[in-house]
Design a protein around this nucleic acid. Structure first.
Length: 354
DNA sequence: CATACGTGGAG
DNA sequence: TCTCCAAGTAT
């Protein structure tokens, strides 16, 4: 049972993933950004589309931000897309050559300690351990760590453990092996300890308390919110508004007009809509209800048909536009919008019973 | 150091 | 339905 066992396990059992076809820094970088807090299965189709459209850092740097956001639509954490684009411009400016060390990579927007170490070790062979959620969990179990692996003291122990398991000859594979182990064997629930190449050195297993580690994180309870969403149609076209590029939430994406509904009458909502988006609003019947959750908020979206005065001067409010269904596919949108339009979009609204 | 940022799958 | 949380980063 040793670091060598981990690497040989990886050589035998690693998954075939599209970003493992080579060690091109651009491709490794894109995959690492997409994989931040996002599951492998979710990332794969996005990664393929993205690489097809932006095959190299030059292509990405030259592209309009809107197109990048559009290919990111539904993937979440949209700040990643803007920072990716910003970093691509910086790298392209530098002749297309990536920084080659973790310390230099760390300077690029969107690249923190984890991503810098991942790209440096995988693409450039730097001997540096990566610490992600998988590694924290694997090491917390190995060490039966009785403290939060994200706090200073715990983190020190995790780093030491990861460094010990690092193979100096193949740091990239070695790092991926530890993450792969966490993703496929040393899973949060129902770990498959019988298949673990490190089982012999696992203190949590020895105590028969594998699932007790790592210590649970404290979690903020989700807020419950009810919102009224206005579906304004002009023939096949839907009225959408763009969120400001500097908004904290879903920046730069297009959304349907909405207001908080909690404790408010439909009349209140009409007034708020006109205040926020300008124009005169008339809320019609509800045509759908959509549930959606977004970072500690669970949303109940009541979708209403609505009309707006024809003398709407959108120049007074946020950027607005009318779009047909096919056009919306090419727009930066969030998954929330896709859900609502799927449930109550043009042509569907009439068939909905509510 | 705590908090905010999206989303969808699993149990 | 509900809770947890996944290859983190920025503030």
């Amino acid at each position: 049972m040793s670091a060598r066992d981990l690497l040989s396990w990886y050589d035998r059992c690693s998954r075939d993933l599209p970003w493992r076809e080579d060690q091109d820094p651009y491709r490794v970088w894109i995959s690492e950004i997409m994989l931040q807090q996002t599951r492998v299965e979710t990332v794969i189709p996005y990664y393929r589309r993205f690489l097809e459209r932006f095959p190299d850092v030059g292509a990405l740097g030259k592209a309009p931000l809107d197109e990048v956001l559009s290919l990111w639509s539904g993937l979440g954490y949209y700040r990643r897309a803007r920072q990716l684009h910003g970093a691509a411009k910086m790298v392209a400016q530098n002749g297309g050559d990536f920084p080659t060390t973790a310390a230099q990579l760390r300077e690029l927007p969107g690249i923190g300690p984890y991503t810098a170490a991942a790209v440096a070790s995988i693409a450039f062979g730097e001997v540096i351990p990566v610490i992600d959620g998988n590694v924290e969990r694997v090491l917390a179990r190995q060490l039966a760590l009785g403290e939060d692996p994200r706090k200073i003291s715990g983190r020190r122990k995790v780093i030491a453990g990861a460094a010990e398991l690092l193979d100096n000859g193949r740091p990239g594979d070695s790092n991926q092996a530890l993450m792969e182990l966490g993703a496929t064997v040393c899973t949060p629930r129902n770990p498959r300890c019988g298949e673990c190449p490190l089982a012999g050195r696992c203190q949590a297993l020895e105590l028969d308390q594998v699932e007790m580690f790592p210590l649970p994180k404290t979690r903020k309870p989700a807020q419950r919110l009810r919102r009224r969403v206005a579906l304004v149609l002009d023939g096949e076209k839907v009225l959408l508004f763009r969120r400001p590029q500097d908004s904290e939430l879903l920046a730069g994406t297009w959304e349907l007009p909405w207001v908080e509904a909690d404790g408010k009458s439909a009349r209140d909502s009409e007034r708020e809509l006109s205040l926020r988006y300008s124009g005169l609003w008339n809320l019609g019947p509800q045509v759908a209800e959509v549930r959606h959750s977004i970072t500690f908020r669970s949303l109940r979206l009541e979708v209403h048909r609505a009309q707006i005065s024809s003398q709407l001067t959108v120049a007074d409010g946020p950027e607005a536009g009318w779009f047909a269904a096919e056009e919306i596919l090419d727009l930066p949108t969030s998954s929330q919008v896709q859900k609502v339009l799927g449930a109550a979009g043009p042509g569907v609204a009439e068939q909905k019973n509510l």
